[in-house]
C-alpha cells in the first residue's frame, strides 16, 4: 500500500477527489488551456490527419507532453494548495 494509494483512496472516499477534479477542470478552462490544447490537436490533425490516418492513441501520445507543459504554474499552485488543505483538514481522521 503506497502512500499515493492511500491518498487516492481517501480522496475518493470523502468525495474530495471529484471536487478537486472539478476545480482543475474549471481552472484549465478559465486560463485558456483547454483552447490551447484544442488548437494543438487541430493543428496536428490538419498536419497528419488526412483521411483518418491518425488514431486517438497517436494523438494522445503526441499531445500529452506538450499539453502538460502548457499548464500554468498558477493552476498547479492553486491545486496544490487545495490538496494540502484537504489533507491537512482530514489529518486527524487518517
Amino acid at each position: 500500500m503506497t502512500v499515493s494509494n492511500v491518498v487516492d483512496q481517501y480522496t475518493v472516499l470523502t468525495g474530495d477527489r471529484s471536487k478537486i477534479k472539478d476545480l482543475l477542470c474549471n481552472r484549465l478552462i478559465e486560463c485558456g488551456w483547454r483552447d490551447e490544447v484544442r488548437l494543438l490537436c487541430r493543428n496536428i490533425l490538419l498536419e497528419k490527419g488526412g483521411n483518418n490516418s491518425i488514431t486517438v492513441e497517436q494523438l494522445i501520445t503526441e499531445v500529452t507532453p506538450k499539453a502538460r507543459t502548457l499548464v500554468p504554474d498558477a493552476v498547479k499552485m492553486d491545486l496544490l494548495m487545495k490538496i494540502r488543505t484537504i489533507l491537512a483538514e482530514n489529518d486527524a481522521d487518517i
Binding site: V3, S4, V6, V7, E30, C31, G32, W33, P72, D73, A74, V75, K76, M77, L80, I83, R84, L87
Partner: peptide, 22 residues
Amino acid sequence: GSLLKAEHAKPKFLFSTLCVFI
C-alpha cells in the same frame, strides 16, 4: 487567464504533497 502566468515559483507538485502527507 493569460494574465495568470505569473510569479509563482514552480512547485514540486506531486512530490511535495506526498512528502507532507507521509
